[in-house]
Lab assay of single mutants.
Amino acid sequence: NKASVVANQLIPINTALTLIMMKAEVVTPMGIPAEEIPKLVGMQVNRAVPLGTTLMPDKVKNYE
Rank of each mutant, 00 (worst) to 15 (best):
L40A: 01
M43E: 04
M21S: 05
N46F: 08
A34F: 06
T54I: 07
T53Y: 10
L17V: 00
N8D: 08
Q44R: 14
V5W: 06
A7C: 05
Q44K: 11
G52Y: 04
T53H: 13
A48M: 14
E36G: 01
K61A: 10
L17D: 01
E36T: 05
V26C: 12
N8F: 08
N46R: 10
T28M: 12
V45H: 00
M21I: 03
V5N: 03
V5S: 02
N62P: 00
P57Y: 09
S4G: 03
N8P: 00
V27Q: 01
L19A: 10
T28E: 13
E25Y: 09
M21V: 05
R47W: 10
E64R: 11
K39G: 09
L40K: 03
A16L: 11
V45G: 03
N62D: 13
L55M: 05
K23G: 09
E35V: 13
G42M: 03
L40T: 03
P50F: 09
I37T: 03
P12H: 07
D58P: 00
G42T: 02
N14W: 15
M56P: 02
P50K: 08
M21H: 08
L17E: 01
A48V: 12
E36C: 14
K23S: 08
N1Y: 14
K59L: 15
G52H: 04
Q44N: 05
V5F: 04
R47H: 13
N62M: 09
E25F: 09
V60A: 02
S4K: 01
V60T: 01
I13C: 13
Y63E: 02
E64F: 13
T18W: 05
R47G: 13
M43T: 03
G31P: 00
N62C: 13
M30F: 12
G52V: 01
L51V: 13
M21E: 03
S4P: 05
V27K: 06
M56Q: 09
N46G: 05
K2S: 11
A3Q: 10
T54S: 04
D58M: 02
N1P: 13
S4V: 02
Q9W: 07
I37V: 03
L51H: 14
I32R: 06
L40N: 02
A3K: 12
G31T: 04
K59H: 15
G31Q: 06
E25L: 14
V5K: 00
E36A: 10
I32N: 01
N62A: 08
M21W: 04
A3Y: 10
V6F: 04
K2C: 15
A16I: 14
P38R: 09
I13P: 11
L19V: 09
I32Y: 01
M30H: 12
N8W: 06
K59A: 15
P57Q: 04
P57S: 06
K23H: 07
N14R: 05
L10H: 15
N8V: 11
L51T: 11
K61M: 12
P50T: 08
P38Y: 10
T54C: 07
L51G: 10
L51C: 14
A48P: 13
I11R: 00
D58S: 10
V45A: 01
V41R: 00
K2M: 12
V45M: 00
A3T: 06
I13K: 14
L55T: 01
M43D: 04
A16E: 11
E25D: 11
V49D: 07
R47Q: 15
Q44S: 10
Y63N: 03
A24C: 08
K23D: 05
R47F: 11
G31F: 02
N1E: 13
A16D: 10
E35Y: 13
G42A: 04
A24E: 08
L10A: 12
T28F: 14
M43F: 10
K39E: 09
A24S: 12
S4A: 01
V5G: 02
V5Q: 03
T15Y: 07
M22L: 10
E35L: 11
N8E: 03
K23M: 07
A7Y: 04
T18N: 03
D58V: 01
V49A: 04
I32D: 02
N46D: 07
A24W: 08
P50V: 08
N1C: 15
V27I: 06
M30A: 14
I11D: 01
V41S: 01
A7E: 02
S4D: 03
K61Q: 10
I37E: 03
N8H: 06
P12M: 07
M43P: 01
M21G: 02
D58G: 08
M21P: 02
M22C: 06
V49E: 07
V6N: 01
I20Q: 14
V49F: 06
M22F: 07
P50S: 08
I11S: 01
V6Y: 03
M43L: 12
V60G: 00
G52T: 02
K59Q: 15
G52K: 01
K23Q: 06
L17R: 00
Q9N: 04
T18P: 01
T28W: 15
Q44T: 13
P57N: 00
I13M: 12
I13R: 12
T54E: 04
K59T: 15
V5T: 05
L40V: 02
Q44D: 06
N46T: 14
M56L: 09
Q44Y: 15
V27W: 06
N1A: 13
I37C: 08
A3S: 09
I32K: 01
Y63D: 04
Q9P: 03
V26F: 14
S4H: 04
V45F: 00
M43I: 05
V6T: 06
T53W: 09
T15K: 06
Q44G: 04
V27L: 03
I13F: 08
L55N: 00
E25R: 13
P29G: 05
N1Q: 14
M43K: 11
I20M: 13
K23Y: 08
E35N: 13
I37Q: 03
T15N: 00
P33L: 10
A48K: 09
P50M: 09
D58R: 01
P29E: 06
I20W: 11
I13A: 15
N62H: 10
M22N: 01
P12C: 09
L10D: 15
A3I: 04
K2V: 12
N1D: 13
Q9H: 03
E35H: 13
I32S: 04
N62L: 08
I32M: 04
L51K: 15
P33A: 09
T18C: 07
P50H: 09
I37P: 03
I20V: 13
E64N: 14
V26K: 09
V27M: 05
A34Y: 05
N62Y: 11
P57H: 05
M56K: 04
N14D: 12
P33D: 08
A7F: 03
T15G: 01
E25S: 11
I13V: 12
T53C: 13
L51A: 15
V26Y: 14
I11H: 00
K39W: 13
Y63A: 02
E35Q: 12
V60Q: 02
Y63M: 02
M21T: 03
L55V: 05
M43G: 02
P57A: 10
V41L: 09
G42N: 05
K2Y: 13
P12V: 07
I13N: 10
A16G: 07
P57D: 04
I32P: 02
T28N: 13
M56E: 06
P12K: 08
V26L: 11
A16P: 14
I37M: 12
V6K: 02
I37H: 00
Q44C: 13
L17F: 06
V60D: 01
V45S: 02
M43Q: 05
V49Y: 05
A7R: 00
P12D: 07
V60F: 06
N46M: 11
E64Y: 13
E64A: 14
V41W: 00
A7N: 02
P38H: 10
M22P: 00
I37R: 01
N8T: 15
L40I: 08
P12T: 07
A16V: 14
V49Q: 06
Y63H: 04
G31C: 06
A48G: 06
K61N: 10
K59E: 15
V60N: 01
V60H: 04
M21L: 04
P33I: 03
P57W: 13
P38D: 09
L10P: 11
T28V: 13
K61Y: 10
A48T: 15
T53D: 15
L55C: 07
E64V: 15
N8L: 08
E25M: 15
K2N: 12
T53A: 15
I32T: 00
V49G: 03
Q44E: 15
L17Y: 00
M56T: 15
V5E: 02
L19E: 09
E64G: 14
N1G: 14
A16S: 12
P57M: 05
D58A: 08
A24V: 08
V6Q: 02
Q9L: 10
L55D: 05
P50Q: 10
A34N: 01
I11G: 00
N14V: 06
E25A: 14
L19R: 11
A34D: 04
V41M: 02
A7G: 03
P33T: 05
N46W: 12
A34K: 04
P38V: 09
V49K: 01
M56R: 06
T28Q: 13
V26A: 08
L55P: 02
L19T: 08
G31D: 01
A24G: 10
N14Q: 04
T28Y: 15
